[in-house]
């Protein structure tokens, strides 16, 4: 096994521990943001595992999990947890409803595209994130070396495209930027905003550092995914692992009990 095949399994293990930790907090406190974070982190973990699996072998349902949970939905659900924590207004429940319906719709679109997957292009030599999309070539653009191309009709025009697993113009791919922009705004924006508020008030240094780590972790995977789509896929698995470590560390750091929050029994035990 190469290092690139081991890293996603490490990320999965970290995300599993992270998810259990967050869901345990939800079970104790019953605050909805823990549930949304738990769902999003479980999706992240499932996506990491699917990616690790697809680096070794093909399965169309593992690909389903990878695309739907790993590429499309997880950031939006984690970010929605941050929104639910920061904003206690009735409209957040409406956004929750939109997110649930949108996620179900994306799942439906993904199911629709499953019989049309171009599985002949799959290879374990490249990360799945470098081979899932069919990309139409612009006039004068040449296909990368070794890429398989196809000439097809797209939006009434004959185009040459680099073959990928998902057919050209798959509707499910149009939903992904919406979820990812929402996730980026709420998760990273929320973490930066929280860190700034605590920093400005000069209080709770652990939450300042924790939120900076969360934002950096979310941006690590966002940047690695973007680099992959620009042709630099070698950073993806490292970015994913870095993201899992930074976000877990950030959540643990931010959730450290403050002196005022420590239950009296614990305080008494600590001073004994």
């Amino acid at each position: 096994m190469s290092i690139n095949q081991i890293l996603p399994f490490l990320s999965t293990a970290i995300m599993l521990g992270f998810t259990v930790w967050v869901l345990q907090r939800y079970a104790v406190r019953r605050q909805p943001h823990f549930l949304f974070w738990g769902i999003g982190l479980a999706m992240f973990g499932a996506g990491s595992f699917a990616e690790a699996y697809l680096a070794l072998s093909w399965s169309k349902w593992v690909f389903f999990v990878w695309y739907l949970f790993g590429a499309a939905l997880n950031a939006a659900w984690i970010g929605h947890g941050t929104l639910a924590l920061l904003v206690r207004k009735p409209w957040v429940k409406v956004v929750t409803g939109v997110l649930v319906v949108g996620s179900l719709y994306a799942g439906y679109l993904m199911l629709q595209v499953m019989p049309k997957l171009d599985t002949a292009v799959f290879t374990t030599d490249k990360p799945i994130s470098e081979q899932y999309g069919t990309k139409a070539l612009s006039a004068g653009e040449t296909a990368p070396a070794g890429a398989q191309t196809i000439t097809t009709t797209y939006r009434g025009e004959e185009v040459t495209a680099v073959r990928g697993l998902l057919p050209l113009g798959s509707p499910v791919r149009l939903t992904t930027p919406f979820f990812n922009i929402y996730g980026l705004l709420t998760l990273v924006g929320g973490a930066i905003y929280s860190a700034f508020l605590f920093w400005r008030k000069r209080v709770m240094p652990n939450r300042v550092i924790g939120n900076v780590l969360i934002a950096a972790g979310a941006l690590a995977i966002g940047s690695a995914s973007t680099l992959t789509r620009l042709g630099y896929g070698e950073f993806l698995y490292l970015g994913e692992l870095l993201s899992a470590i930074l976000m877990f560390a950030g959540f643990r750091f931010a959730a450290r009990p403050q002196p005022d929050e420590v239950p009296q029994g614990v305080q008494a035990a600590a001073t004994d």
Binding site: N180, L184, V188, W199, I209
Partner: peptide, 21 residues
């Protein structure tokens, strides 16, 4: 360091959002 990090993270976020758009 913290304010510098917050500004840098904000810039990267903005760049990624513009890319996604």
């Amino acid at each position: 360091i913290i304010p510098g990090l917050l500004v840098a993270l904000g810039i990267v976020t903005l760049a990624l959002i513009l890319f996604a758009l």
